[in-house]
Amino acid sequence: MKRILLITAILFMALTNGQAQVLNKDNTKQIGQAVKEGIKDVKDAIVQDTKPTGEHEQWDIYAAPKLGLNLSNLPGIDGKVKLGLVGGAYVEVFLAKNIAIDVEMQYSHQGSSGVYRTINTTNASGVPTSQKYGPYDFKLDYINTNYIVRWYPWIDLPVSFTTGIHAGYIISAKAKLDNGTKHNLKDYIYKGDVAIPFGVSYEWSQWQIEARYNLYFRKLARNAEAQELMRNARNNMFEVTLGYRIKVL
């Protein structure tokens, strides 16, 4: 039995050593070369030598991740402007030399801070009184889908103007008091929101800086309980993003 185990061990070691020698001698250089070529192909696809203008070829396709900051508040309640994060990516297709269509997925953190709630009541004697609660910090997180028309008015200048439809879906909505008390508002406000975006962008090399304002119309509160806290609040947002454009086709 010991002899069989010893022979098996020797055969296994010999086979393993032989495979290692084949791999080391015959394939290591090929694998290393393939990896280098793959890395170069990826780098060449991402880092492109380009000088953007206001004119493109029809059916050119670009993809771009983007990241930035926004300033938001909630008109309809008296609050301060909140600084938030915005980020996402878009795909752009040129329908003409100076007109493109973008489809964009985006996350945005919005809201307002320093909001006070005033409740008017009457005391036991029937005298009107009011009580002030706050400040509240409203934190709203959205996943947005933007359908954008991009227009380049000048051939020699990589400046574009945008508009379209902004559709947002709420994923988190909270109002937090200074003392730490939190109110979950997600089930009391409309899950969807719509806005019209207006933007302007400038490109250099593969970079694009864009300023965009989203004009909202819909009130957030969808029932009396939410209206008691949020009244006629609606979204309002201005964003600045930096994108990195990669020509796909």
Rank of each mutant, 00 (worst) to 15 (best):
K2P: 11
K2F: 07
K2G: 15
L5H: 11
I7Y: 02
T8N: 15
I10W: 11
Q30M: 11
K36G: 09
K36T: 08
V42M: 14
D44K: 12
E55D: 07
W59S: 15
A63F: 08
A64K: 08
P65N: 07
K66I: 03
L69P: 02
N73S: 13
P75E: 01
G87S: 12
G88V: 05
F94K: 07
I99M: 09
E104R: 04
M105P: 04
Q106Y: 02
Q106K: 14
Y107P: 02
Y107N: 05
S112K: 09
R117Y: 07
I119H: 03
I119P: 03
S125F: 09
S125E: 10
Y133W: 13
G134Y: 02
G134P: 00
P135M: 13
Y136T: 13
D137C: 10
F138T: 02
I143Q: 06
T145N: 02
N146H: 04
G164N: 07
G168V: 04
A173G: 07
A175N: 06
A175K: 02
K176M: 09
K176H: 04
N179H: 03
H183V: 15
K186V: 02
Y188D: 14
I189K: 13
Y190G: 15
D193Q: 09
V194S: 11
V194F: 10
F198R: 09
Y202N: 15
Y202H: 15
E210R: 12
A211N: 01
N214D: 08
L215V: 02
R218H: 03
K219L: 01
E225H: 14
N232Q: 13
A233C: 11
F238A: 13
T241H: 01
R245Q: 11
K247T: 01
